[in-house]
Nucleic acid binder design. Structure first.
Ligand SMILES: [Zn+2]
Ligand SMILES: [Zn+2]
Ligand SMILES: [Zn+2]
Ligand SMILES: [Zn+2]
Lengths: 141, 141
DNA sequence: TTAAAACTATATATCTGCTATAAGGTCAAT
DNA sequence: ATTGACCTTATAGCAGATATATAGTTTTAA
């Protein structure tokens, strides 16, 4: 199967497939005499795996790591589970950061109604005055 | 004051200041004879405003819009408040997406303990099997 | 006085995960 | 013969910086 078919069957752009190949996430397929890439079902499964990882918001580096684990199937799967735990904490710290941010924004929003002119806007005043603390999106825990 | 001093006083990198200037968020300052940028307190306030907006995770485009509002101080501040409301809904939809993701990840994680080998890992099996639905990080509401 | 350290300038590359465009080669049908 | 659909590579763009390369300037100290 050629790249367009593979792309359609998995629901990605052909560019994305070539991109994954360049990144080392998909093995370079054989080529026809004219240079066209030829894929088999293995490639399809591999690509689908990558896409499902991306749906889980795993980074390409994390996916790469998972693939390395799959290449050594007899080691303990604790490494896989640890990777997932780490990723869950990535996601949780993002959530926490965003929730703190939301709180800040809502309180800022409450400092103004719509009946003023810009020069007296409570929101702008709140930002300009600035008793704010930086967010930390990711921690290296 | 030169760029290094300004950078230190606001707590950003000098590169970041030049970057904001290129993006049109900071007005180009006067130059010394040797070409060095010279800043005054106005620049400092403007830069600090930008940084506080960034802490609130406002995009550079949103900040730009706020600046345009500030340039027309007699219009109704409803536009400012609307911008903030939009941004709050950006943040909320990010939170919702991440929470849905967290749920998926936690359930995936629960499908494995650490006592297997990679070939039998419940996490990898869960990803490979793939009964997953794509996330939508942002909606164009 | 001179040489090194610290600062400034511009231009360019890097990061993430794609997506889009340009410019061209290949193939089937008309 | 030419259209159209497909394929190839190379390159640029998005956000929001950050890093590097290379060069000129100022300050400090030996
Ligand atoms: Zn992660
Ligand atoms: Zn207002
Ligand atoms: Zn926003
Ligand atoms: Zn496992």
């Amino acid at each position: 199967m050629r790249i367009g078919q593979l792309a359609q069957s998995v629901g990605v752009d052909t560019q994305t497939i070539r991109f994954y190949e360049r990144q080392g996430l998909l093995p370079p397929p054989d080529r026809q005499e004219n240079g066209y890439r030829i894929y088999n079902e293995k490639h399809g499964e591999r690509l689908a795996f990558i896409r499902r990882c991306r749906i889980l918001d795993l980074s390409l580096a994390e996916i790469h790591e998972l693939q390395r684990y799959q290449d050594d199937p007899h080691q303990s799967c604790a490494v896989v589970n640890a990777l997932l735990d780490d990723h869950i904490s990535h996601v949780r710290s993002q959530i926490a950061a965003l929730q703190a941010l939301e709180k800040q924004l809502v309180s800022l929003r409450a400092s103004c109604n719509d009946d003023r002119e810009v020069a007296a806007c409570g929101v702008l005043a709140g930002i300009s005055e600035g008793s704010m603390h930086p967010q930390q999106a990711e921690s290296s825990a």
